[in-house]
């Protein structure tokens, strides 16, 4: 496969996201801009300008009408995808580390950072999916994390029933998305190594977490039970579950501050593919010069892209071997069912 390199950003990428149909890629970077790209040929559709600080996070609603971005200028901004018009700005006391739409696009959550005496919070807004409509300034829910360590990642579970958060100390919590009540808090990753990413399966009944402790874990929403563990040899920044094929993709690499002291080979700046069920590594894709900050898989399952500390987004469309690959047991099972 020939990767498409998207070089529209001047600084490190922080997050990349696909639209629901997998045709558009949204990328945010520390250079204050968000970009939209066509996934099939890498053409840049447009740039969303307006933020005053580094961007940490981006999400697009399921209709690909609204785009939410959050960053170090302490704002969440809502854009119209098609025109690039700024629809709404919500201001906060500290930086926004994560935004995510619910499955139906009616709710938007944001995670604020703990700093300057402010506590880490998860806030939820009700979103009007019509780009012409006025968006509310009123939070429908606000979860303040005063007892737990700071939240690093968060997302809505299936049917927007729960909010799952990942914390700085490697624990994962479940909250009631209606009342904001803490239901469960489990330690899944090594203590004091933060959860760096949380991505959903297609039906949002389970998710994968990535952590600096060099592992990624597949967990259920209902019990917060660890189903699978994928062990890597480098701190992980991101993990994604692939639709169509049962794989997971992990991205990471040495911390950005140590990069200059190591060669690209040692830095392990590769996307690692694991089999989702057998937990076995099946391959790697090289290319970035810096750690991978985020990996995202198209919901169609035919391509994935990674955003790196090197300022590039690399879009990979999978070749036939990716789809043909099967473990011996899978082949046997198929043969048996044929007989």
């Amino acid at each position: 496969m020939r990767p498409i390199l998207l070089s529209g950003h001047e600084r490190a990428l922080t997050q990349v996201k696909f639209s629901k149909e997998g045709d558009l890629i949204f990328s945010v970077s520390k250079d204050h801009n968000a970009c939209a790209w066509y996934a099939n040929n890498g053409e840049r559709f447009g740039v969303y300008k307006g933020h005053q600080g580094a961007l940490w996070t981006v999400d697009v609603d399921p209709n690909t009408v609204l785009l939410a971005t959050g960053g170090a200028d302490n704002t969440i901004r809502l854009w119209e995808v098609k025109t690039g018009k700024l629809l709404k700005t919500w201001e906060f006391g500290t930086a926004i580390k994560r935004v995510e739409f619910s499955e139906d696009g009616r709710l938007l959550l944001g995670v604020t950072e703990k700093r300057q005496g402010q506590l880490s919070t998860v806030i939820v807004y009700e979103i009007n999916p019509d780009p012409e409509a006025e968006q509310t300034s009123e939070q429908s829910l606000r979860i303040v994390c005063d007892e737990l360590p700071k939240v690093t990642v968060a997302g809505f579970s299936y049917l927007s029933k729960y909010i799952i958060t990942g914390h700085e100390d490697g624990s994962v919590s479940k909250w009631d998305a209606k009342t904001g009540e803490l239901l469960q808090n489990v330690f899944v990753h090594d203590a004091d190594l933060q959860v760096t990413d949380l991505q959903w399966s297609q039906d949002r009944t389970y998710f994968i977490t990535a952590s600096k402790d060099k592992t990624a874990k597949l967990m259920t929403v209902d019990e917060l039970e660890v189903l699978k563990t994928y062990v890597a040899d480098t701190p992980l920044n991101s993990a994604a579950i692939t639709p169509v094929k049962d794989y997971v993709i992990l991205g990471g690499g040495q911390a950005a501050m140590d990069v200059t002291t190591t060669s690209a080979r040692q830095g392990k700046f590769e996307a690692r593919f694991y089999h989702k069920v057998f937990e076995e590594e099946i391959g790697r894709v090289r290319g970035h010069f810096g750690p991978l900050n985020y990996v995202a898989v198209s919901p169609t399952g035919t391509c994935y892209c990674s955003g790196g500390e090197d300022g590039y987004v690399r879009v990979h469309h999978f070749d036939p071997p990716y789809f043909d690959f099967k473990f011996e047991v899978e082949r046997e099972k198929e043969n048996q069912s044929r007989i």
Binding site: R2, P3, I4, L5, G283, R286, F318, P321, Y322
Partner: peptide, 11 residues
């Protein structure tokens, strides 16, 4: 937008 080098990825 540029094209990268071909990568052979075979699981």
């Amino acid at each position: 937008t540029t094209l990268g080098e071909n990568i052979i990825f075979r699981p």
